[in-house]
Amino acid sequence: MIQVDNLTVRYGGVTSLDGMTLAFEKGTCGLIGPNGAGKTTFFNVLSGFVRPASGTVRAFGTDLLALPHFRRARWGVRRTFQTEQAIEQLSVYDNVAMMASSLRGGARRADVLAAIEFVGIGASSYAPVGTLGAGQRRLVEVARAVAGKPRLILLDEPAAGLPDEETAHLAAVIKSIPGQTGALTILVDHDMSLVSAVCETTAVLDFGKLIAVGPTATVLRDEHVMRAYLGTAEV
């Protein structure tokens, strides 16, 4: 579980996260909000790229902010980025195997192959990533996030730009991540059908503040949320 308390991030005069307080228990959780709401900033805080002005983050009993950023992957933080980061020159296997892991030798190899098998890329593990399609590359990234005993998986718009068919496959994969790995998965996406298909719990950010959290179906019908998305204050 992850417990975020009073998290504030400022870039100069801009307050990107404003006293955000949030708890996710387990499973796959959604984090949605309009552009600039602070979703990616929140991920950047969790992966250590951004130092918050104040606040605490405890995940599974560990003070995450106290860990240096390169330790967090070893601890179990995984993330994907908005822009796809699969490495073209390397094979699928090498792309996944670059993830930090406490496993060594044969166990590590088996773990990497299991992660590739789990996401169902539909190509040889030794195929160069440069030969794969966009959906398959996204799956390579998800496989990387699943490898090596993850505890907290952050997926930043994994379905951006994918056709419906591939999004459906990706949704099935993301939905089964907690069952496969036991990791808490946080999904940021603008595709509401994906979020409602995958996430039991969803939180909504707007201008750095949490405006709603709860079961996904309830949250998506919430009038504050509709207002934040559609900008119709007088409905």
Binding site: G48, F49, H69, F70, A73, R79, F81, M98, A100, R144
Partner: peptide, 10 residues
């Protein structure tokens, strides 16, 4: 990408 490498614990 250095951020992506960092995120992979490199």
């Amino acid at each position: 990408s250095e951020p992506a490498a960092l995120a992979a614990g490199i």
